[in-house]
Design a protein around this nucleic acid. Structure first.
Lengths: 117, 117
DNA sequence: CCCATATATATGATCAAGCGTATGTAATGC
DNA sequence: GCATTACATACGCTTGATCATATATATGGG
């Protein structure tokens, strides 16, 4: 079932989901605890929104050990990626999007960094 | 109050509103009866959605005689226009968006055409 | 097997979205 | 003033979104 405008824009309409997507767009993939830390939200809230994005076909997930990594779905249509790109540029200087990337980079003990450095 | 990602994407998430916006993007401005006819929906439904778009600052309206003409708000930020452009291209061949433009052009007695031709 | 960590889901409550029908308002012409 | 046309809004209803808290599941290490 292809991605509809309704399902994409409904996903982007919630700031929590949009923040996650814009973070994933910058990094190759992110686990739940990284997103939880970067956004400063509680884990069940992040997990529920990620489940919605997964069910809509907007993100893909991959389990590695204890961690589940999320990334933009590799088969996302080009127009959806363009919408994300335009949005990322449009909100680059706005809260809370602007601070999410720095909060992520300042996170201690990031799983990927710990085991693969 | 500037347009937020939340208010824009929430507006685009409803197919009725998105169809109206993509039609307005192609024409200079459209009155309610033109949108009602093009979409094949009842008038109060169109009117309620247009009110939401107006309150969100996404469209502007202008009364001329009996008719109220709606257009994309002239102060819409560039990134919002870009999102609309990408979306219009992405769904150009999909129902119901593809047929809306032709349904509009085949409408008899369009107000603008009647009085100004 | 038991425990700790990471993530997912269930629960119950609150709040907003969207709908069709009915009615209100605004402009025009007679 | 009255009727007509165009548009807006109120009402009652149903459905769905989001949340915080609590609990379940999964993996890896002792």
């Amino acid at each position: 079932m292809p991605l509809t405008t309704e399902s994409l824009f409904r996903a982007l309409a919630d700031p929590t989901r949009l923040r996650c997507l814009l973070l994933m767009r910058g990094e190759s993939e992110l686990c739940v605890c990284e997103l939880t830390h970067a956004l400063g939200e509680i884990q069940p809230k992040i997990s529920r929104h990620l489940a919605q994005l997964r069910e809509a076909g907007i993100v893909a997930d991959r389990r590695q050990g204890l961690w589940v990594y999320y990334r933009l779905h590799p088969e996302l249509p080009a127009w959806a990626l363009e919408v994300l790109r335009i949005t990322a540029e449009g909100v680059a200087n706005q809260a809370p999007f602007a601070t999410d990337h720095t909060a992520l980079r300042e996170m201690p003990n990031r799983p990927g960094a710990v085991c693969c450095a």
